[in-house]
Design a protein around this nucleic acid. Structure first.
Lengths: 260, 260
DNA sequence: AAAGTCTCCTTACGGTGTAAAGTGAGCGTA
DNA sequence: TACGCTCACTTTACACCGTAAGGAGACTTT
């Protein structure tokens, strides 16, 4: 599932990411594709049919080529995914206005990143353990770093807060992202799926209320009202994102007042 | 990658999760395996060799059976993964002492969940969009819900905070989880990988400091000192987890004082 | 014109999940 | 006791995957 590139390809991969191609004119036929075209086609496949449908053959076919043709442009699928991941970040702003202070800027940054993940759910399936270090990914980090420097917090704390913000946005986005794919793949809407599942659950676990009293109590007290014009799961996840972000930023503010 | 079960199998899957087996004595040979044995074997494979190595054939082989033999116990791989995911939660406490207040209990809950993810990194690759709703997963939710009821916050806010906590722990754990796998698979330690990558980066992007001034500034000011007895990435991720959690809980405390 | 090199294709290998059909063991009944 | 049904498990097969290897032909350089 998670594939790591070999050491030898690492250099080539970085050069591709940073477009540092040194191309001395060589004999032989000219290339009829570009790396950008391939990355775009791959993103289209992943956007439209999900990461599971992303295969070298599928990307090649979209470009009227075989799957193997891509290997003259890209060392392998893993590197292609890194390029897709970096490229997808290109649409995000490189900076945010700080006139209103760090908090609205941080909110805007998180919301933009969230929207980016919604538009490209497959991004959440790309491993973060060894980030690919592309220019656009760095631009997103640069943006949030600049914003958070406004808080005046010490650098060490700031680094952790930045990591936390990324974790939160990714996690919150994951809850919706695949939910958007599932109905398309299965033909069952999330609402139908959920109500069917809930009905089965009461049959299969009749003692649910006894085993999980707090969950039942919370569900009974939760005043969440569902605007039926929008999908239920998405709506709930969006609210979790907004409330959670605000709680998180409250925590940052608490750290600021404590530092004073 | 993310596979969704068909509607017809949904009932069967839930019955398996909740062990609601109605087994009238039937003719024919007795089953020589149990679902639990299969789930255990699958977890061993995933723990030892990663999610990528989890195949029906591999699990069957570990039990001295073919891959196809599993299909009399489990509808498919997707359901097996759901069973693994639920079972992995079984080791977590069902409740936490609340004598010291909600905050230490919440910290303990998050730390336990974090440790669980570290022990079973593959759990982070299981889609959360349509949770499988197993008994042990619900037990973890029940535990944190009981803890957070102590805050006295309104239910609607509480629901979102619970979601946020999950997102944060999962996100923070993801950063380390796969990092632990990578060296084993590639033979390159994270430190070597990182320093090699950093050296290449300065070659490929010589204007880095100009393009990302805040990142460079943050890196220069960050006083993070590396205890060389432990892996670098893991250590950094652990600190992000601890600091981030504390910031998050500060935000919850701010909500409490505001509600008063 | 000849040589060389690069792009792209075809073929092939070992892997995946799982459908379909075959085999034989064990139980319920006659 | 013997028949026969049913089920556990295996074998085989199919369509897919990433990519290594080798061949065909186009193009540039000499």
């Amino acid at each position: 599932m998670v594939v790591f590139a070999a050491q030898g390809d690492a250099r080539r991969a970085l050069e591709l990411l940073w477009r540092a191609q040194s191309a001395p004119p060589r004999p032989g036929p000219r290339q009829t594709l570009t790396v950008d075209e391939i990355v775009d086609a791959a993103i289209e496949v992943a956007d439209g049919s999900g990461m599971a449908a992303l295969s070298m053959r599928a990307v090649g076919q979209r470009l009227g080529r075989t799957g193997m043709a891509l290997y003259t442009y890209v060392p392998g699928k893993s590197e292609l995914i890194d390029l897709m991941h970096d490229r997808a970040h290109a649409s995000l702003p490189r900076a945010y206005p700080l006139a209103g202070g760090w908090r609205p800027a941080a909110k805007a940054w998180a919301a933009d990143l969230w929207r980016c993940y919604q538009a490209h759910p497959w991004m959440l399936q790309v491993s973060q353990a060894r980030p690919a270090l592309g220019p656009h990914e760095y631009a997103v980090v640069e943006a949030v770093t600049e914003i958070l420097f406004e808080t005046g917090l010490p650098a060490r704390l700031l680094s952790r807060v930045i990591g936390t913000l990324f974790h939160f946005v990714r996690g919150a986005a994951s809850a919706v992202a695949e939910a958007g794919q599932a109905p398309a793949e299965t033909g069952v809407s999330n609402e139908d799926w959920w109500t069917a599942r809930a009905a089965m659950l009461t049959e299969v676990a009749p003692d649910f209320a006894d085993r999980y009293p707090s969950i039942v109590r919370l569900g009974a007290q939760d005043s969440f009202e569902w605007d039926e014009s929008q999908p239920y799961l998405e709506q709930q996840a969006r609210e979790t994102f907004e409330v959670g972000l605000s709680v998180l930023l409250d925590g940052v503010e608490a750290a600021i007042t404590r530092a004073r």
